[in-house]
């Protein structure tokens, strides 16, 4: 319990064959003004795999996700303590450029938020500002491959110049994923990417996440336990600002070691 004076102990179950660590978090605390949202979260996130964060609303899973690309910097009064490293490099180090970090750690948000520009410009925006394309042909290639990787290309190839906001919700979300992929990030953070989508669009995005894991490290926050079970290899359960339990997904869902995890996944609270 958060009020208990004893130090909180996360229950961890290691993978049978652990992956190399991509992101390492150590005692991450987040304080919004006077309210503490995270009480020291430590976790290792393996490379080229999908890690799901689950937990009831307000448990701090999105807050922790937003620490990984320092999006919490934009929130007034938010303070982050502890240490997060990406490939061993402290991302809260003052020498580290936050713009570069966000180019390496892309993000897909809960609500699809394409720019009010054409589909092409939506995807091309990142490569343009980071100078990733040397020529127009280069840029076009990046856009096309990104859209292909996001399995959106076939649906939009004839209308790349039409506004991205004119697509359906599921297509918009895949456009946002294509936009994130276009800058070749190493990590993609997804904050409840399917919560605004219908089941068919959700299935497409989940399929996409599964494909993307061969090249990218993916961290996904989700409210749907079925989704976590379907797409992730490892699952972390958050509750009241603590990381309660983390381990291989099948292990968490079939044989949780902690009572609260058990209660949550069986639907007794949350």
């Amino acid at each position: 319990m958060s009020s208990s004076p004893a130090p909180f102990q996360t229950i961890r179950t290691p993978d049978a064959s652990p992956r190399p660590t991509k992101i390492h978090a150590d005692g991450v605390k987040v304080i919004y003004g006077t309210k503490q949202a995270l009480h020291g979260v430590s976790i290792d996130i393996g490379e080229k795999s999908v890690t799901a964060f689950i937990g009831p609303s307000g448990c701090g899973k999105s807050t922790f996700l937003r620490c990984i690309n320092r999006m919490n910097d934009t929130i007034v009064g938010a303070r982050v303590e502890g240490k997060i490293t990406l490939d061993g490099e402290d991302i809260y180090n003052t020498d580290l450029d936050v713009v570069e970090l966000r180019a390496r750690v892309g993000m897909v948000f809960q609500k699809p938020n394409p720019f009010p520009k054409s589909i092409f410009d939506n995807v091309a925006y990142g490569p343009r500002i980071h100078g990733l394309a040397k020529s127009k042909a280069d840029l076009e290639e990046i856009v096309v491959t990104s859209l292909q990787k996001a399995s959106l290309y076939n649906e939009v190839k004839d209308r790349l110049q039409e506004p991205g906001t004119g697509l359906s919700g599921g297509q918009q979300q895949r456009l946002c994923i294509a936009r994130a992929i276009a800058v070749s990030p190493e990590v993609i953070l997804m904050d409840e990417p399917c919560s605004a989508l219908d089941p068919i669009a959700t299935a497409k995005v989940e399929e996409l996440i599964d494909e993307l894991r061969t090249n990218y490290t993916i961290v996904i926050v989700t409210h749907s336990m079925q989704q976590a079970a379907r797409v992730s290899q490892r699952t972390a359960f958050f509750h009241l600002g603590h990381l309660v339990e983390e381990g291989p997904t099948d292990h968490i869902f079939t044989n949780p070691l902690e009572q609260r995890t058990q209660d949550y996944i069986t639907g007794r609270f949350g």
């Binding site: 690309n69 180019a103 948000f109 990142g126 500002i129 980071h130």
Partner: peptide, 8 residues
Amino acid sequence: DAGLGIGA
């Protein structure tokens, strides 16, 4: 968020 998230 979209702009910042992409590294602008």
